[in-house]
Nucleic acid binder design. Structure first.
Lengths: 357, 357
DNA sequence: ATTCGTAACGAAAACGTTTTCGTGTTGACA
DNA sequence: TGTCAACACGAAAACGTTTTCGTTACGAAT
């Protein structure tokens, strides 16, 4: 159980100075070939690796990026992490994750833990509670401390930073238009409460599609689920709600749901009530997760390309980190700010499966 | 865009020494009440936070633990991470994740990246390729460097460390006995190749249950899937294989699958072939993921309690880290080693749903 | 013989902490 | 008046690097 070897120990062992060892290992031609050889051989023998922490301290950067997401047991967020990790690793960065668990306080605590020098920048998706409170001071605070942030998916205008989003509006639009084009006349929307921006945008896409199709939106056909209770085990409640919804609106012949779970639950309930899918009722969901793929019938869905979002977010962050390195962005004119931060939109894709005609 | 403030800057600003500032902030009674007040006020005003990196360097520990898993887009592994993060955070640790992507090389690279001082210990699950090569030198190497490892789920005898596993054998046993008790006479097994230990153990449980039930195992009823191709989009291949399997063995009235995906795919194929579930064929899977819960019919399954595994693994690792802190474990007698490392078994639980009678 | 250049190396600072060990200034007490 | 403890604070080392700036010695050039 020998501790890791350091430059100092090599220096003492070989009776040279620390600087000589450092230079020899980095292949500096300042050191004679003889000593370089000797030192490198010794270092390899003892499997010397420079201490990252010491390097971080010296270079004032850690080469790791912090991710904070509301929940990790969630297909979409996992794919985003996979994307982040992929490009981060490729570009020499590590990834450290914190879970806000949809809680405002935990989000702050996590950010403070990491902002204390552990990371060079953040990639994060805002927790529901934070969106509800509309309190974004902690984001702006860390940005002002010179730590860049990239927001993804659940973003907000009040924070000035790079963002990666999905075209929720257009995705929903495409989905509902698809339903219309296959003959649906009474399309229901199953959505969440409005404070999560993505839910709001998808609702807007739904409405817009109806309007384009010269159909008056019927508020009875919109079911808003209080997703504070989608935590665990509230499946029965969800099913009951949807079942009642169907019973109250017998004319429904199409369903657009803002997430996978609502969509497959709707299918399950519909089948239970004797409807055939897609003959009697067609269903489209959002998020191309494992549920959509393996549901029966398999679910037509709007794919968000989570991995691509992660990749893009990581690229944006690292680009900015390495741009700051040259120190050109010390000071930004107020009127340049608008162009300074990018918002990248990842296109959605309608993946047609067996729940639509 | 002001950089983070340091002790040195506070010291200069208030015209005292760095040591005074440090002591004042830690509330040392060595400093007069006046100066303490003044310094603390100033620090709060400028939102001073000690630099984690500097602390890590000084204390020679980082208070972060490294996780390396084969894949993050996977319900089981996400729940484990959630468990790890939960107790890690509670005990003041951060969590940094690396993805091996089932690759031997990426596993090593990731470990080397993190072992360079970035973390205090590892929690990991071995990649398939590593298991196939049976090359575990990198694990033993890092352990010998004094960095503790906790292995979970996919473990291996050749590595001497704490382990957290699931009672795969007993879980499979329970599942198959359940099938027997509900009248199944010809129970099929859908499993993976043998080199992944968990698959092997579950197979053994299956065999044992049959033997206990005085039934001769029929090798025709065992389908081994080459899971090098379960990556993506090989659903059709999987379905075809299972379909052929069913057609070759018409007498099958029960299926035990070593994971969720195989189980729901088996259900889908069975239904397609005209069988009623659970009337004609009963199905049980392993891993209680989102698929099992929402499949139609919902899948009876052996729950692994991933979150609990993660919690336990984190506790084991941190316990060891903080035990080493007191320096009592400098040297371990060879014959004490057996008792020195624990292997914790997390009990499985059979969750009965609608795919069984 | 003096100067100069260069090759080969070492000393020291810096990154931001904590902590040990001084050190100077009081006030009290003999 | 001299001694000593207590008080309040500062200097410096240490963690492990990299890098800048010496410094030495030696051969060549003038």
């Amino acid at each position: 159980m020998k501790r890791k070897i350091t430059l100092k120990q090599i220096a003492k062992e070989l009776d040279v100075s620390i600087s000589t060892v450092s230079k020899a290992l980095s292949g500096s031609k300042e050191i004679s070939e003889d000593t370089t050889q000797k030192i490198q051989a010794f270092a390899k023998l003892y499997n010397y690796r420079p201490n990252n922490i010491a390097l971080s301290l010296k270079n004032r950067k850690t080469k790791t990026i912090g991710i904070i997401i509301p929940e990790i047991v969630h297909h979409f967020f996992s794919t985003v992490i996979r994307g982040i990790e992929l490009v981060a690793n490729k570009r020499g960065y590590n990834v450290i994750v914190g879970l806000s668990n949809e809680s405002f306080t935990k989000e702050i605590i996590n950010m403070e833990m990491l902002a204390g020098g552990s990371i060079d920048g953040f990639i994060l998706s805002i927790s529901k509670e934070t969106l509800l409170k509309q309190d974004y001071h902690h984001f702006n605070a860390t940005i002002n401390q010179g730590m860049p942030i990239v927001l993804f998916d659940r973003v907000v205008n009040e924070v000035d930073c790079d963002k990666v989003i999905v075209d929720d509006f257009k995705g929903a639009l495409k989905a509902v238009k698809k339903l219309l084009s296959t003959g649906c006349k009474n399309i229901a929307l199953i959505t969440t409460m409005d404070y999560v921006s993505v839910g709001r945008l998808r609702t807007q896409g739904y409405l817009e599609a109806l309007q384009d199709g010269k159909i008056n939106a019927d508020t009875n056909l919109i079911l808003k689920i209080d997703d504070s209770l989608d935590v665990e085990g509230h499946l029965e409640v969800l099913e009951k709600e949807i079942e009642q919804f169907f019973k109250n609106n017998k004319k429904i012949d199409g369903v657009f749901a803002v997430n996978e779970l609502y969509a497959v639950t709707a299918m399950k309930v519909a089948r239970k009530l004797g409807f055939k899918i897609p003959d009697d009722i067609q269903v489209i969901g959002f998020t191309d997760g494992v549920l959509s793929k393996h549901a029966t019938p398999s679910l037509t869905t709007v794919s968000q390309h989570g991995q691509k979002m992660g990749e893009k977010a990581a690229d944006l962050l690292i680009d900015r980190l390495e741009l700051e390195e040259v120190g050109s962005s010390e000071y930004i004119e107020e009127n340049e700010r608008d162009e300074f931060f990018k918002t990248v939109v990842i296109e959605t894709e309608l993946i047609e499966r067996d729940s639509t005609k």
